[in-house]
Structure formats: structure tokens, C-alpha cells
């Protein structure tokens, strides 16, 4: 009995994952390439990529911006979230070619002149991260959430980050971190921490 070995193993593949695999396959040498140009973290970049190169691979492999993480390859976990033209986008389900001419912000480009963005500061102040793997995507989703809604309720924050999975924090301190950042961005004093910080 002869079977393609992967046929049944992959029979529950979703469309999205198939697309991810396809993207990988087209990274092969010898594949026709195309020119792409975009602005990443304020810098103009251009490159030569296979047409189906996914944005996350371009960022990680070509630009070596490894703060954007691959967690699930199915646009479900959100670890690969970056900001494309002001919107939070899961870069494992966007082609590099689709980002032609776009303004992209990755986690590496969020701090300005060495000053942390208030959301980054909030995650630090309120223990919004543990292992840190989901953190870049979570922070960038929170940044766009606060741009769209300057004073979100707890429920609105939770709904706003529903597409970003965290396995460490139980989200409690992530919500607190975003509340902290929202207050800072509004020019208000953040609510006190649940603990007294000593140093």
C-alpha cells in the first residue's frame, strides 16, 4: 500500500496553513523573484523576493527583524502582528508583495529616540509579559487599539486583543498594562499598581 506520507497527516490543514506552507515552498532557490519596496520602521527598504514570500519571513529572514515571531502559522496566535499603514496585521498571512509601498512598524521601531512607547512602558510597569514571545504582537495590537479608541473599557480592551494569544499571563496584567498606556497617552495619571514598586 503506497500513500503520500503527508496526505493524512495534513488532512486537517486549514486554508491558511496551506498558504503558509506554499509560501515556504516558494522561498526555494530558482523561484522567479520580484522587487519590493516599503518603509519599515521609518527606513526605506527594498528587496528581491519570491512572489509568495510571506511578510513575516521577509521581516525575519531578509531584514533580520526577529522581534516579529512565528507562533502558529495560521493567523490565529498573533505573535507575528505588525502595523501596516496604521492597522495591526498578522504578517504570517500577508504576502510581502502586498506590502509594496506600505509603511510598516515592527516592535523594533516602536520606541522613538530610545524612549519607550507608553504601551511598552505599560507592559514593563504592570508585568504585562512573562516569556515575552507573544509580547511584540500583543504590544502592537494594543497600540492600534488605543489609536482607534483612546479610552477603552476593560471589555473593549479584552475584545481588542482577542486575536493575540498569551499562554503565560492569563491576560490580567496585559489589560492593566494597556489601561496604564491609555492613561499615559491621554495625559492622565495611570491608576496605581496592584503592588507597591520598590525599585
Amino acid at each position: 500500500m503506497v500513500l503520500g506520507t503527508n496526505l493524512r497527516f495534513f488532512r486537517h490543514i486549514g486554508v491558511v496553513e496551506a498558504r503558509f506552507q506554499l509560501g515556504l515552498n516558494f522561498l526555494m532557490k530558482g523561484e522567479p523573484h520580484m522587487q519590493v519596496s516599503m518603509t519599515v520602521n521609518g527606513q526605506a527598504v527594498s528587496g528581491d523576493v519570491a512572489p509568495r514570500t510571506l511578510l513575516v519571513h521577509y521581516l525575519r529572514e531578509d531584514l533580520r527583524l526577529t522581534g516579529t515571531h512565528v507562533g502558529c502559522e495560521t493567523s490565529y496566535c498573533g505573535a507575528c502582528t505588525v502595523i501596516v499603514d496604521g492597522k495591526a496585521v498578522k504578517s504570517c498571512t500577508m504576502l510581502t508583495a502586498q506590502a509594496e509601498g506600505a509603511e510598516i512598524t515592527t516592535i523594533e521601531g516602536l520606541a522613538e529616540n530610545g524612549d519607550l512607547h507608553p504601551v511598552q512602558e505599560g507592559f514593563w510597569e504592570r508585568h504585562g509579559l512573562q516569556c515575552g514571545f507573544c509580547t511584540p504582537g500583543m504590544i502592537l495590537s494594543a497600540v492600534t487599539l488605543l489609536e482607534e479608541n483612546a479610552d477603552p473599557s476593560e471589555d473593549e480592551i479584552r475584545l481588542g486583543i482577542e486575536g493575540n494569544l498569551c499562554r503565560c499571563t492569563g491576560y490580567h496584567n496585559i489589560v492593566k498594562a494597556i489601561e496604564y498606556a491609555g492613561a499615559k497617552l491621554r495625559g492622565e495619571e495611570p491608576a496605581p499598581a496592584e503592588w507597591e514598586v520598590k525599585a
Binding site: E61, G67, E108, A111, W124, K198, A199
Partner: peptide
Amino acid sequence: GGVVRRREDPALIQGKGLYVDDLN
């Protein structure tokens, strides 16, 4: 017994932590 902000966080919140898959 005191709360001290985490010292590992500055790298992680700026995308500058190193995970194994980042090695090339």
C-alpha cells in the same frame, strides 16, 4: 517581599530578546 520591575523586560518589549529560532 518587594516588587521590583523585571530586568528581563526591556529587551523583550523592544523585540530584542533572542529565541532559538532567531539564530541564523
